[in-house]
């Protein structure tokens, strides 16, 4: 495989584009320049760090290092899910619902893919396990964050409708069913759109990266299909789980709507 190495100057030119965009948004008063610059800086620092970590990990491939890095990634993703909530659950639940759903879905799908589909030896080979888990966690995190945010915001806005149904003797599940469906849909929409547009409107990032790195196109396509299906499954199961757990938490043992279990987030 022939990889054309990128020089620092190449990256600087790309970074200049983001800086130019930030300058433009500042000029027209959109208030996004600060976020763009912070996110751009975070990208550079985080990716350089993970590059160093991965290089070390590949040189010293041990299961416990892979497990440790996986847990760190999960912990950060859980924090991101919580930070993206307009109204988050109070106490441990604010962190726990998203994190536990990601743990069950993303980890299960990654382990399944590694042991039955990709089959590296050993199955936790960091070159496969970490990028795959990273892609799954990243997408699952987005789906769960969107789903939970929609759930709690809509429940807050429609609290009187939910209670109107409770007053009629409907169960908590019936009373929030439409909101739950809507929340799950909003969490799954990005990945459904990505699948529908793949190859026609857009060339998915992973496939593009592989092709740029010299992988034959058909091999890259097969990997991309596999990854998209895994991401869909991980995001879907994770979002459904998180939305169900979240909606259950909005009611107590006497099926009363408990919006006092939410508090305003920083979003």
């Amino acid at each position: 495989m022939n990889v054309i190495a990128l020089s620092p100057l190449d990256l600087t030119v790309a970074a200049a584009l983001v800086v130019a965009l930030a300058a433009l948004t500042a000029r027209i008063g959109m208030g996004l320049s600060r976020s763009l610059l912070i996110a751009g800086t975070r990208t550079v620092i985080q990716l350089l760090l993970i590059g160093l970590v991965l290089r070390t990990l590949f040189d010293h491939a041990q299961l416990y290092w892979v497990a440790l890095l996986s847990l760190v990634m999960l912990a950060v993703a859980g924090h991101e899910v919580m930070a993206r909530q307009g109204r988050r659950f109070t106490g441990w639940w604010g962190y726990g619902i998203g994190t536990s759903s990601m743990f069950v879905s993303a980890f299960a799908v990654t382990v399944l893919a590694l042991t039955t589909m990709i089959g590296p030896a050993p199955w936790w080979e960091p070159q496969y396990a970490i990028p795959l888990l990273g892609m799954l966690l990243g997408n699952t995190m987005t789906g769960i964050a969107l789903g939970l945010d929609r759930l709690t915001q809509t429940a807050w806005q429609q609290r009187r409708v939910i209670e109107a149904r409770l007053m009629m003797g409907h169960s908590w599940g019936m009373s929030i069913s439409a909101i739950r469906r809507d929340a799950a849909r909003s969490g799954l929409m990005p990945i459904i759109n990505a699948m529908a547009a793949a190859g026609i409107v857009s060339l998915p990032g992973m496939m593009t990266g592989q092709i740029l790195a010299g992988t034959p196109p058909m091999e890259a396509v097969k990997y991309q299909i596999l990854v998209m299906f895994l991401i869909t499954a991980g995001t879907g199961f994770g979002t459904l789980g998180a939305v169900w757990l979240g909606s259950k938490r909005l009611f107590d043992e006497r099926q009363r709507l408990r919006l006092d279990r939410l508090k305003a987030g920083k979003k």
């Binding site: 009187r160 409708v161 109107a164 007053m167 003797g169 409907h170 169960s171 099926q255």
Partner: peptide, 19 residues
């Protein structure tokens, strides 16, 4: 059960809502 309770002890608010 709470669902049966609310059917039996029925509350009509001043501004009832519909879904």
């Amino acid at each position: 059960t709470p669902t049966e309770w609310r059917r039996q002890v029925a509350y009509l608010p001043a501004e009832p809502l519909w879904w």
